[in-house]
Design a protein around this nucleic acid. Structure first.
Lengths: 243, 243
DNA sequence: CAGCAAACATGCGTGCACGCAAGTTTGCGT
DNA sequence: ACGCAAACTTGCGTGCACGCATGTTTGCTG
């Protein structure tokens, strides 16, 4: 199930996709991202403008995809890779943190560029939605099929938490979708809030509140044993939440 | 903070918004929703097409907004209205269910119409994102200011759960004419799965997995008392999760 | 009441997303 | 090798979102 012969057609397709990615990123860095039209990207990649939209639904997606690439699959794999004994919440948290720590930016000019422009910022945030389905799958895997719906909700929760963490991380600007709350904001200097600043810190902080939900789901959906019939040794399925 | 004199300008603005809503809905029902252009809506409302986009960012928003109206504020208010003693998870769940049970569709031809067309369906689902900010605010209210970030995450989790519930709810919807909601019922007893079919059922099922997270947040963020200094009597902040 | 500044409606122009209907390439069975 | 069907690319046309500049309305203040 790993594409024994990748097939010529599929390879060309991926090549085109990659070419568009590269072209979009390069042009966006060279000129401003606002000075790049779809037509330019397509031309640089050697395809027609119309074809561009067969690969990317929006102008920003190509640029952002250079950063996100196949992060979805990576996160799912990272979760699946954790030994079955660890707390699900921990497995997911670490997998997410791991995949977001190295932003995968080849050029250090890229990140400031994305965080600056609102359109790119939004497109970047939208990519987090992509991790939901794979996550739901691996979570359901661990929860057993009885928790399929629960897995979906938990995965969605994780996705939402990640989105919030990212929003906070690249803050100095804000607002997406509908109206922004904004009014009664935390001007009060309560220091015990998030120690944040670093992305990993924010991610952990955002995911922490969901841990009890994972524990509960895990607890009441699988009082079973490990893959070899060995009773699983758990690392604290419950208890006070960390940090 | 309730606009003592609403102001003439603001009234006109709301009137225009309402006119656009009504026109969009009416035209969408009369002809198919695909046979309505922004230009038509604008004309029917007596404004220019350009003005339409000053009120709604997309063509579908106007149609859908007839259903969603001010649901965001209603949910927040509903949560705030619950007595302080009840479990936060219950308060939120009930508030959400309450606001989504009466879909607020004046015309029964409207719902089938929205559930059918993918574009409208997506636009409708997008509106759920709007409840996040108000929800976060009221949740933060109950959690105390120390849980502000937690509140955001929980609110986002609720939003995601609602979205999933809605997706599942209007999945079996299809066909041109008849759109009967809530028919396929729970299979027999093997499953503790969801008995779903009805929207309220799906909402509760989707929100249930998050309850432990609410409990934990509530537990460790506010060992305090009620608004009048009276120790709050809680309805089981912890314990096995219901249903 | 006069006048000014902000908010708003509107026209115009640009770039974009996407359906549709060809033309072209790839994969596969015979 | 051959040829067909599906997949892909491409040009074209339509409707849409939105920035910008301008004329008009509203609300406020001296």
């Amino acid at each position: 199930m790993t594409t024994p012969p990748p097939g010529l057609r599929e390879r060309k397709k991926q090549a085109t996709r990659e070419a568009l990615r590269a072209a979009a990123l390069r042009l966006a860095v060279e000129r401003g991202p606002d000075r790049v039209r779809v037509e330019d990207i397509a031309e640089a990649a050697g395809v027609s403008p119309r074809t561009y939209n067969n690969y990317f639904a929006s102008r920003e997606q190509a640029i952002v995809s250079a950063l996100t690439a196949d992060r979805e699959a990576r996160i799912a794999a990272a979760v699946a890779a954790r030994p079955a004994g660890v707390r699900l919440a921990d497995a997911v948290t670490e997998a997410v943190v791991e995949q977001y720590t190295n932003t995968g930016a080849p050029d250090h000019r890229v990140l400031p560029l994305i965080t600056t422009r609102p359109a790119l910022r939004d497109a970047f945030l939208d990519t987090t939605a992509g991790i939901e389905a794979p996550l739901a799958e691996v979570i359901a895997e661990r929860l057993g099929d009885v928790g399929e719906d629960t897995a979906r909700v938990l995965a969605a929760g994780v996705t939402a938490a990640v989105r919030i963490a990212l929003e906070g991380w690249l803050r100095p600007a804000g607002g997406a979708g509908a109206g922004e709350a904004g009014s009664a904001e935390s001007s009060a200097g309560g220091g015990l809030v998030v120690p944040s600043g670093s992305l990993p810190g924010r991610l952990r902080a955002a995911l922490a509140p969901l841990a009890p939900a994972f524990d509960a789901a895990e607890r009441n959906a699988r009082p079973r044993e490990g893959p070899a019939g060995v009773p699983v040794e758990r690392t604290r399925p419950s208890g006070g939440r960390p940090r």
